[in-house]
Amino acid sequence: MSIVVLSNAVGVVYTSHATRKLTSQMDHLLQERDRLDIEWRNLLLEEQSKSEHSRVTRIATKDLKMVRPLPKEEVVIRLQ
C-alpha cells in the first residue's frame, strides 16, 4: 500500500514537472509567433513600398523602356 502511494506521489511530481516544461515551451512558441508576426508586418510594408505602382511604372517605362499597348494594338489569343 505504502509503495503504491509513494510511487504515485513520484508520478505526480514527474507529470507536473513535464507539464511545466511543455507550458514553458508553448509560451516560448507563442512569443516566437508574435515576433514572426511583427516581422511579417514589416516585410509587408517593405513589399508594398517596393511594389508600389508608380515605382513599378517608373522602372518599367524609364529604365526598361516598356510601353503599354493601346487597346487597338492588343491581340486576343483564345485558348480552346
Binding site: 508574435d34 508576426d37 511583427i38 508586418r41 514589416n42 509587408l44 510594408l45 508594398q48
Partner: peptide
Amino acid sequence: SNQVQRGLITDRNGEMLAVSVP
C-alpha cells in the same frame, strides 16, 4: 496580456491599404 494589432485593410486583390506595426 497579449497585444492585439488593429486589423489590416486590403484592396480586392490583397494589396495593403493600412497595416499596423507594433
